[in-house]
């Protein structure tokens, strides 16, 4: 408990605007979390699924993941599910939160089966949820230790 635990968070979102806003928000939440808990929050953001898989860290704690990628050049075939699978394979302790516009139940169920922690809509209401989810996960991670 004496040493600060670093909580690594990755944001995978191809929309630059949403990526920036989300990163900013997550960083802000992280700041307030590190005031209350003995943690360091490290946020890294990726604008493509391929980049996120390339830079996947084994000790990643939280991943905010977009489901639907379209704007990138190379990863036309990669979607959130692929990133989720990779993340679960390499960073098994990672909590993956999927943020999406899609309200497709089939996809949601498939994501749940692959161990997604939360499935959130990309609206402003979700933002509060993001904060509380981060809070919960940080608490869990601290307990694990």
């Amino acid at each position: 408990m004496e040493t600060k635990k670093t909580i690594k968070i990755a944001i995978v979102e191809d929309d630059v605007f949403y990526n920036k806003a989300l990163t900013r928000y997550v960083e802000l939440e992280g700041e307030s979390l590190s005031k209350h808990y003995n943690v360091d929050i490290k946020v890294s953001s990726f604008t493509s699924a391929a980049k996120s898989i390339e830079n996947l860290e084994d000790d990643l704690d939280i991943m905010f993941l977009d489901y639907f990628f379209s704007s990138s050049e190379n990863d036309e075939d990669l979607n959130g599910l692929d990133v989720l699978k990779e993340a679960k394979k390499h960073a098994s302790n990672c909590f993956v939160i999927v943020l999406s516009e899609l309200k497709d139940v089939v996809i949601a169920v498939e994501l749940m089966r692959n161990g997604v922690y939360e499935y959130l809509n990309k609206d402003l209401d979700s933002r509060n949820r993001i904060g509380s989810i981060m809070h919960d996960i940080v608490k869990m991670k601290l307990k694990e230790k």
Partner: peptide
């Protein structure tokens, strides 16, 4: 459809 989908979330963010 994809582009429209992508544009929706920033717009929503701007209310």
């Amino acid at each position: 459809a994809n582009q429209a989908h992508k544009m929706a979330s920033p717009c929503r963010h701007m209310e």
